[in-house]
Design a protein around this nucleic acid. Structure first.
Length: 882
RNA sequence: AGGCGGAUAGCUCAGUGGGAGAGCACCGGCCUUACAAGCCGGGGGUCGCAGGUUCGAGUCCUGUUCCGCCUACCA
């Protein structure tokens, strides 16, 4: 027997801990790869960085996944939600290096092996922090399977992929211009560069002609790179420079002659139409330099300082050097002009240092062949992106994909499984550690010191976590995954690459659906960031308002295609909703004396109870539909609307008649319907509010071990009763009308007065039948309904659905108030009438609009005309009295 | 430069060619045997602007303004 009493108020803290550990104990979140009896549903978590702590983005992302997983689990699926964390190469290395810096050390002081030990130690200590926070959020992951992108099995997958891509020629190594972060001292992929407009300058520098007296003026935003100039280029069509192509200019400061070349790339409109060419420090110049066979003079060190090729500027920081060069040019009288200039500057996405285009030897993935499959898979519908408009963004990027620089000059990560032979100079790539060159057998080999881009391993996440390269039971059962839930900010970084790798190595897409959710912003629509100080800490929100209220808020605002503006006030608002459910449950539980469980007998139930069941099944249908369509906001909205404004506001109040004044049979019927509704609401809401629903559900007289594994509600077609819903719409309108009259007349709602209604036909029968409830909810001492009632003198009038409701007010209120109320009503009705009459006067409308629309307008017209007549005559009556 | 969103009540946002909605905020009333974290009632709108299609447009089309984001090698 379950406890029937709930405490006065809901205390989330203890309840959440209690049930979460209970669920873990019962193993509800564990997916069984050997279970053939159920359909499968799988999701891999976007692995959070081990350096991270739970922020709003994680909270939203995981709440949505948890909703899906809990929903599917309740629907009887074998659900795998694969959890884990990402080693986050640069980010983690940065964190540990900072820690070292506090001890006055650099990673080079420790050496590679010692440093890596430090990182692992750090990971063991802090790396699981975020996992614990996800548990706090209620995430129903299969924690027994928790993976890490650097664990042994995963490393094996990474090596396997690298070797196979290398063998197929899809990975190559070479000297190219890459994005270089001088602070992290590593190459970055194109995606890892964030461009921002910065106020810089455009310096116009004169390059004197070697022969004669002329000069060529070039414009540049980066004067310091002049040290590495190896040409000046002009457009071949530019008449201004036609005569001097092929001649040479003297590179200022360096005092070295460099050629004037012509290249169609040069924009005649920009600056002076002459462009300095620095092949080692600009991607375009690099290309032009290659085309013209120019030398690339690298004047910088990997840390962004100037190197020995910069002559007397050697050792100077690049930005210091810029100033120094400008000063030198001024002194030499070669600076022709300066103008402020806003241009886009790339920054490292990890440390925000301005990146440097830099030539170095790097490893690349040839992306195009992989992208072709990834495009095809989406075109063929094997993977569906939701909302659909992201599909176009995905295609756009895939069509224009460029090779992917995957080597990083850091230590924390998957070291590239390639060895350089000092004897024959060849590269050996191998799945296993090797000690001899695979080409010449020499033992004088050295492993490539670089590690792989973190995203290279993340790309393998959907199958790497399931045991690949072994073809495990888990893979067979759960790959491809059902859905990936993620933010659009990593669509290219991660989703696109998982698509490519999944198709390449599993021969199938990694996920059937990709649901792209919004970004969370602050109240003003600003991106949340620590530097702006506008972050809302999810843990504090859960602490303060309870996890369920927090999760419900996230879901309620997760409308597709729009960012979420989050504020604490909203979370507080939804805590009220949690409280509402709690109190409604208390009401139900404290009215279960004499309750016995049993099937609902529709025939035996009085109309009001069948009415709420009809509404309930409608809500259930809508919630199911919303979840299927990933409309989390609607799903939450349906629960909110039905629970609060239909179940609590109306049905609970109606049910009191049956509970307090009904027959034993009626009372039991009401109890069963109350329990059914509440049980259904709880099961419907469980995916989004797991804790409070479990806590209440465990008090309900229903069978089952846990709401986690209780069936998700399905619409009961037999409960739908459209006619009954219309009848109660009328009943509620009548009640509202009486309440309105009272309120506008300045009477307290609870003031017991009389009311009359003039109706006929079915409405008459309905109002007679429902009179007890109308009396209760409108606080009437008497409610008289009849076909031909005499309207009492001094009575207020309301017309609902053609039915006249009279509320005698003599002696209760001054007539002026009622007149004012009626005049307001008249104005409204008149406005409406004008609209309808305009429409019905339009012949084209009558001719061309569908018949049912015309019929409807005519019906409305009749109704309004009648209503207006009544109001008018009522007003006349009152005016006569005044 | 190209692409994608958004613009509807004071705020945040739904809205499916056919009586403009919700939540919060606001105003007024109320301890009503679940809930004052509540209940009841109410006021609030040129649906960014201009055209067009249509019997009918918040909704579809074209243009336009503002805001946000993404992609891109403009020195």
């Amino acid at each position: 027997m379950r406890e029937r009493e709930l405490p006065k108020s809901y205390e989330p803290k203890g309840v959440e801990e209690k049930w979460y550990s209970h669920w873990l104990e019962k193993g509800y979140f564990h997916a069984n790869e050997n279970d053939d009896s159920k359909p499968t549903y799988s999701i891999v978590i976007p692995p959070p960085n081990i350096t991270g702590s739970l922020h709003m983005g994680h909270a939203l992302n995981c709440t949505l996944q948890d909703i899906l997983c809990r929903w599917k689990r309740m629907e009887g699926y074998n659900v795998l939600w694969m959890p884990g964390t990402d080693h986050a190469g640069i980010a983690t290395q940065n964190v540990v290096e900072k820690e070292l810096a506090r001890e006055g050390l650099t990673r080079h002081d420790l050496g590679r092996d010692e440093f890596l030990k430090r990182v692992w130690a750090w990971k063991d200590k802090f790396g699981n922090y975020i996992i614990e926070q996800l548990k706090r959020l209620g995430a129903s992951c299969d924690w027994e399977r928790t993976r890490f992108t650097m664990d042994e099995g995963f490393s094996q997958a990474v090596r396997e992929v690298f070797v196979r891509l290398y063998e197929e020629g899809l990975i190559y190594r070479g000297d190219y211009m890459v994005n270089w972060c001088p602070r992290c001292r590593t190459a970055l992929s194109d995606l890892e560069v964030e461009y921002e407009d910065e106020e810089g300058g455009l310096w116009y520098i004169a390059y004197p002609l070697e022969e004669g007296t002329g000069e060529v003026v070039v414009a540049t935003t980066r004067p310091e790179t002049l040290l590495g100039d190896t040409a000046v280029a002009v457009n071949p069509k530019d008449p201004r420079y036609r005569g001097i192509v092929g001649k040479r200019v003297i590179l200022p400061v360096v005092e070295r002659p460099i050629p004037i070349i012509s290249d169609a790339y040069v924009d005649m409109e920009f600056g002076t139409g002459a462009l300095k060419i620095t092949p080692a420090h600009d991607p375009n110049d690099f290309e032009i330099g290659k085309a013209h066979g120019l030398e690339a003079v690298n004047v910088m060190n990997p840390d962004g300082s100037m190197n020995e090729r910069a002559g007397k500027y050697a050792g100077m920081d690049r930005f210091e050097c810029r100033k120094a060069i400008v000063k030198a040019l001024e002194e030499k009288g070669l600076l022709r002009k300066f103008e402020p200039y806003v241009h886009s500057v790339g920054h490292c996405y990890r440390c925000h240092t301005a990146i440097e285009p830099y030539i170095s030897t790097q490893w690349f993935v040839r992306a195009r062949p992989l992208a072709e499959q990834a495009i095809k898979a989406v075109e063929e519908g094997k993977t569906r992106i939701i909302p659909e408009n992201w599909t176009k963004v995905y295609y756009e990027w895939m069509y224009n994909i460029r090779d992917w620089c995957i080597s990083r000059q850091i230590w924390w990560g998957h070291q590239i499984p390639a060895w350089h032979c000092k004897t024959c100079g060849e590269i050996s790539v191998s799945r296993e550690e090797i000690t001899r060159c695979l080409h010449c057998g020499s033992g004088d080999i050295e492993r490539d010191p670089d590690v792989l881009d973190t995203w290279f391993s993340s790309a393998l996440w959907p199958f790497g976590t399931m045991g690949w390269p072994e073809m495990t039971k888990t893979l067979e059962r759960f790959y491809p995954t059902s859905c990936l839930v993620t933010g659009f900010d990593i669509l290219f970084f991660w989703v696109a690459r998982m698509m490519m790798m999944g198709l390449k190595f599993m021969g199938d897409v990694p996920f059937q659906h990709v649901y792209i959710h919004a970004l969370i912003r602050d109240e003003e629509g600003q991106k949340m960031s620590k530097t702006k100080g506008n972050v809302i800490d999810p843990l504090r929100m859960m602490e303060r308002y309870g996890t369920d209220a927090f999760r419900f808020t996230l879901a309620a605002f997760a409308a597709q295609g729009r960012d979420i503006r989050m504020s604490e006030k909203r979370i507080e608002g939804y805590r009220h909703f949690v409280n509402k459910i709690w109190n409604a449950s208390r009401f139900v539980l404290m009215n279960l004396d004499g309750y016995t469980p049993g099937e609902l007998d529709l025939e035996a139930l009085t109309p009001v109870h069948r009415w709420i069941l009809s509404r309930l099944t409608h809500a259930v249908a809508q919630a199911n539909k919303a979840l299927k369509a990933y409309e989390f906001d609607r799903y939450a909205g349906v629960i909110y609307q039905f629970t609060w404004h239909e179940f609590c506001d109306w049905y609970v109040e109606f049910s009191k008649e049956s509970l307090y004044r009904g027959t034993t049979e009626e009372r039991l019927g009401a109890q069963r319907v109350l329990v059914t509704c509440l049980d259904t609401i709880l099961r419907l809401a469980h995916p989004v509010m797991p804790f409070v629903t479990e806590e209440i559900w465990q008090h309900l007289p229903v069978s089952g071990d846990s709401i986690v594994v209780a069936p998700f509600p399905k619409p009961e077609e037999a409960w739908t009763d459209q006619a009954l819903e219309e009848e109660f719409a009328l009943v509620m309108d009548v009640i509202t009308a009486v309440r309105n009259i009272k309120a506008e007349a300045g009477l307290p709602l609870t003031k017991r007065i009389k009311a009359l209604a003039k109706a006929s036909g079915n409405p008459l029968a309905v109002l007679v039948r429902e009179a007890p409830r109308i009396k209760a909810l409108a606080f009437l001492e008497e409610f008289k309904v009849n076909e031909d009632l005499q309207r009492p003198l001094h009575s207020a009038l309301a017309i609902v659905k053609g039915i006249e409701v009279y509320v005698p007010l003599s002696g209760l209120v001054d007539i002026g108030k009622e007149v004012a109320r009626l005049e307001k009503e008249l104005a409204k009705v008149t406005r409406e009438l004008e609209r309808v009459e305009r429409k019905l006067a339009n012949e084209s409308f009558l001719k061309k609009a569908p018949a049912h629309v015309v019929e409807k307008e005519k019906r409305i017209h009749q109704e309004i005309v009648k209503k207006r007549e009544k109001i008018n005559s009522s007003l006349e009556m009152f005016h006569g009295l005044m």
